[in-house]
Simulated scan of single mutants.
Amino acid sequence: MDTQSELTGSKTIIAYLANQFPKCFTTEGEVKPLKIGIFQDIIDRLGDNIQLSKTKLRLALRVYTASWRYLYSVKEGASRIDLDGNVCEAVTNEQATHALELLKASKAKVKAQRETKNKEQLAPNSRTKKPAFNKSGLKKAKSNVKRDAANSNRQSKPELKLNKAVAENLQVGNSVKVVLGSKPVSAIISNIEKEHIKVKVSSGMELTVTIEHIYM
């Protein structure tokens, strides 16, 4: 690999490192924890032999050390290695705990992404569209509903059959219907003076009416 364009992707850079330092890096199988400060060791070792962006090298190392197989290797007491595979310092308890937390978080993220993808695949491709109403159409529809309801109420109410009262049959205390408007009102006869009949309606008000307004 002689040009910078060949070393732009993290996978390409990791493959290059595995080729240059086979006792330290690997692209498959078991890996070993890297020495602390391995980044600077790589820069010092490569020197001017190849044009490699430090930013992209750092990113590639981050990808390598964030992989599940690498995090599995970071256990308390495990030996870290340098570029030549030589044993360096051991992994501390704190470092091992941190690696385990990263591993759990990474697995949880992958699981959540998989569940979201499954839900999207099971979801219907399209939803039933609701019919659109303009304002005038909506008002007209509401008006029709009210009109139909009113007609239904009128049709459902039984007609009240009333018979005109006969003067000779009326007595004080009789329950009668008094019609002064569109609706009959229940009342009780409280006094009869010839053609004038005094009645008391349910509200307590007393009225004087003629026989024409009295129904049984």
Rank of each mutant, 00 (worst) to 15 (best):
T3S: 13
T3C: 10
T3P: 03
E6T: 15
E6P: 04
T8E: 06
T8S: 06
S10E: 04
T12F: 00
I13P: 01
A15F: 02
Y16R: 04
Y16T: 02
L17C: 09
A18I: 02
Q20F: 01
F21K: 07
P22N: 08
P22R: 06
F25V: 11
E30V: 05
V31F: 02
K32R: 15
P33D: 14
P33Q: 13
K35S: 07
G37A: 06
F39N: 08
Q40E: 08
D41K: 09
I42C: 02
I43K: 15
I43Q: 10
I43A: 04
I43F: 03
D44G: 04
G47H: 10
D48Q: 07
D48P: 00
I50Y: 14
L52D: 10
S53M: 05
S53L: 08
K54A: 04
K54M: 08
T55W: 09
K56W: 08
A60N: 15
T65I: 09
R69N: 13
Y70L: 02
Y70Q: 02
Y70V: 04
L71G: 02
Y72I: 01
E76N: 11
E76K: 12
S79G: 03
R80H: 04
I81K: 05
D82T: 11
D84A: 13
D84T: 06
V87D: 10
C88H: 01
E89W: 01
A90F: 01
A90G: 02
V91C: 07
A96E: 09
L100A: 14
L100I: 12
L100R: 15
L102P: 00
K104E: 12
K107Y: 10
K109A: 12
K109E: 12
K111A: 02
Q113R: 14
E120D: 05
Q121I: 11
L122E: 15
L122F: 09
P124G: 11
P124W: 02
P124N: 04
